[in-house]
C-alpha cells in the first residue's frame, strides 16, 4: 500500500516537473532580455543550459 503512495508521489512530482518545464519553455522571454549575458565561465557545471549559451556565443565570435 505504501509503495503505491510512494510511486504516486514520485510520479506526481515528475509530472509537475515535466509540465512546468514545458510551460516555462513556452513562455516567451520578455522584451529586451533576449541576449542577457551570463558571466559564469569560472563554473564547471557542464550540463548547465547557460553554459551552452555562453559557448555558442563564443564560437559565433
Amino acid at each position: 500500500m505504501n509503495i503505491l503512495f510512494a510511486i504516486l508521489i514520485a510520479g506526481a512530482l515528475v509530472g509537475l516537473n515535466v509540465w512546468l518545464y514545458a510551460a516555462n519553455k513556452k513562455t516567451p522571454v520578455p522584451e529586451g532580455c533576449e541576449n542577457l549575458k551570463p558571466d559564469c565561465r569560472g563554473c564547471g557545471i557542464t550540463d548547465c543550459s547557460l553554459r551552452a549559451k555562453v559557448e555558442n556565443r563564443e564560437e559565433a565570435k
Binding site: V29, P30, G32, C33, L36, P38, C43, I45, C48, L50
Partner: peptide
C-alpha cells in the same frame, strides 16, 4: 527577469 533570470537555471 533582466537582473535575476539568467541565474535561475543555475
Amino acid at each position: 527577469y533582466k537582473s535575476l533570470g539568467i541565474y535561475l537555471p543555475l
